[in-house]
């Protein structure tokens, strides 16, 4: 999985995860509070940090930004196009079966704000996930006193996702190479077989995992050594500065 690979190999891997989380979330909140200029600034800022500092290839970053694009386009279009009462307020209008559809300036301004805000918040998320491995995020959650059973389920699920992903990929390749997905009927049959065998494998593996853990004195708790990070004051000052600059320029621009 693309994002997971980069989260372990980027140049900001050794930065304390709490710093990265703080930076991403504070900026996210600013995106909600302030308007479009702040959002455009955040989009550029996150791109620069992720690409120049964390050395994620720019091509990869842009490709990732395009993933949520279809949802964004369709939802924004739905919000722009409205049923309207009087045509005088509309920029463009169109009659279909006695109903007038149209675009109003207000609709456009809502949609544009929404478009940039979404992209800005998404780029904050990308900064976080591309620089911080899931294991570190789970470690932070541990410090937030989240119930341990929930965290263990998170850890287990994270590890097993890759196991099952591999298994599913192998089954898919072998089915596909035997024309398993050649026709629609075949595809349904093959996919049904794939899912049910994946379920059986999951079940069997979970039993085996339990036996293996029992044999190693498992008493209901999975213990893992977490990586040792150190806070870097320069980074903390940098985060505070950037947030302050964003807040003050946004307030100034508002006037």
């Amino acid at each position: 999985m693309l994002i997971d690979n980069y989260s372990y190999t980027n140049r900001m891997y050794n930065v304390h995860p709490v710093e990265k989380l703080l930076f991403a979330f504070l900026t996210m909140i600013l995106c909600f509070v302030f308007d479009i200029y702040t959002n455009i600034a955040v989009i550029i800022l996150m791109f620069m940090i992720t690409v120049l500092k964390a050395k994620i290839p720019g091509k990869v970053y842009i490709k990732l930004m395009l993933i949520p694009f279809s949802f964004l386009m369709i939802s924004v279009l739905t919000i722009i196009i409205n049923v309207i009462g009087d045509k005088s307020a509309a920029l463009i209008s169109l009659d279909i079966f006695e109903v007038t559809l149209g675009i109003t300036p207000k609709g456009i301004s809502t949609a544009v704000t929404l478009f940039f805000r979404t992209l800005a918040v998404v780029s904050c998320l990308y900064f976080l996930v591309l620089t911080t491995p899931v294991v570190d995020i789970i470690d932070i959650l541990k410090k937030l006193k989240i119930p341990s059973l929930f965290l263990e389920l998170l850890q287990l699920t994270y590890r097993l996702i890759f196991v099952l992903f591999d298994a599913a990929g192998e089954v898919y390749t072998s089915q596909n190479s035997r024309l398993g997905y050649a026709t629609l009927e075949n595809s349904y049959r093959s996919l049904g077989l794939l899912i049910s065998s994946l379920f059986i494998k999951s079940y069997k593996d979970s039993q085996d995992l339990y036996v293996a853990l029992e044999a190693r004195c498992y008493n209901g708790e999975l213990k893992v050594i977490s990586k040792d990070y150190r806070f870097c004051y320069r980074n903390l000052i940098f985060i505070v500065l950037i947030e302050l600059v964003l807040i003050s320029t946004s307030i100034l621009l508002r006037r």
């Binding site: 059973l149 263990e152 389920l153 850890q155 287990l156 699920t157 590890r159 097993l160 996702i161 196991v163 099952l164 992903f165 599913a168 997905y181 629609l184 595809s187 349904y188 996919l191 794939l194 899912i195 994946l198 379920f199 999951s202 079940y203 593996d205 979970s206 039993q207 995992l209 339990y210 853990l213 209901g220």
Partner: peptide, 27 residues
């Protein structure tokens, strides 16, 4: 889970199973 500790592993697998399922393509 308290009654049957084996269930924890199964739930972990169930989560992963649901994740992988959502990444497959249905024709």
């Amino acid at each position: 889970v308290k009654k049957n500790p084996k269930l924890k592993m199964l739930l972990g697998f169930a989560g992963a199973f649901a994740f992988v399922l959502s990444a497959l393509k249905i024709p």
